[in-house]
Design a protein around this nucleic acid. Structure first.
Lengths: 192, 192
DNA sequence: CGATTCTTTGAAAACAGTCAATCTGTGTGG
DNA sequence: CCACACAGATTGACTGTTTTCAAAGAATCG
């Protein structure tokens, strides 16, 4: 199993050799080329992926027929349409590799078996789920309370590793802005 | 235990008389007067509440020193700052009763014991958690992709029981608009 | 009825979006 | 090594939307 993943897991909690064995057996390594789609609208998101290397975006097409980025994922992040993964219903989302990437994948079945078999692993995942919930709350709060400039500043602060790696027009989309507006917002921020 | 709550639970899943007994023992009924605060910024949200009667709002103060509504709850909804409840850390939120209300409350301790003791109840809660996650995703998506008018229309469609019961300025706040803008958006919608 | 709270309206200013053009950097093939 | 193509970023002029501030109208409650 990838050392990146093992390091990650051991930072997040305590796992026995048996836990690691169970995790290794439940997962498969996968590669994706830049530009490749791992999920398209209408399909069921039947996997949960941990990013070992590379970058992904999860986006949805709006009523305006535009792509809107819901989430990014780089090394040490998880990626999936969790909603579709949980429900087993078709997804509204696309997942695209933004770079040549490597991930560790869990099918729904093996994921559920793993959580049942390894309480230690489950504890780690529950903690992540809580933090993820908090992140969503904060994003909603920022969306309804902060002007564009502040949203951008907070994004840079929160994800310093993303902002020099992801095209700005995708960041704009994530923030709910056009590329042009983000460009102008950035200029303001520099000159003052 | 309140018949509202029992009906709600039995609609959501199957529970044995023993489950209901456990639930009854884990909870306490509480009343709140209109205007009363159940949680203020800096306190730990040490309870999880099911609304039997009445209405609540959960809001946060933004950098602009304004109140921003994160969530409403009326009959058959749950209310808490889940983030603070889960983490045990001080909350950034306020919870205010918008009407004279009744709720059923679980302390963190009894909540965790209940989930461990009743797998049937846990199943119900897990399903709710999933739906809640999905609702958050949709709200974020709407925030970044829909113009004000569409956000309002979707809100009315999704929560028809809320919009003639909650003051419009709070709905505006929930949607990330000023009261004036919502007022104008509504007039547009009527005349066209 | 009077007080309070909520909603609407108007006019001006700030902000964000659109469209079209230009600029910058990167990588490819001749 | 250069020229070109391409993707991404920026700029300008214009339009449209949202906020702000101030005032006036409803609605509700004691």
């Amino acid at each position: 199993m990838s050392p990146t993943f093992i390091n990650y897991l051991q930072e997040k909690g305590t796992l026995t050799p048996e836990d690691l064995e169970l995790i290794a057996n439940a997962s498969i390594a996968k590669r994706a080329r830049k530009g490749q789609y791992l999920l398209e609208e209408g399909e069921v998101s039947d996997f949960l992926g941990f990013v070992v290397k590379g970058a992904f975006r999860l986006f949805r097409i709006g009523d305006d027929r535009q792509e809107h980025v819901m989430r990014f994922a780089i090394e040490d992040w998880w990626i999936s349409d969790f909603t579709s993964f949980m429900s087993g219903l078709p997804s509204h989302c696309y997942i695209e590799a933004l770079e040549d990437s490597e991930m560790i994948r869990f099918s729904k079945k093996s994921w559920e078996e793993l959580l049942a078999a390894s309480p230690n692993f489950k504890r780690i995942i529950d903690a992540l789920t809580t933090r993820n919930f908090e992140a969503h709350q904060n994003r909603i709060f920022s969306n309804i309370s902060d002007p564009a400039e502040v949203r951008y500043e907070k994004f840079v602060q929160q994800y310093p590793t993303l902002y020099n790696r992801i095209p700005l027009y995708m960041i704009a989309s994530f923030l709910g802005l056009t590329r042009e507006t983000l460009s102008r917002v950035r200029r303001q921020a520099v000159t003052k």
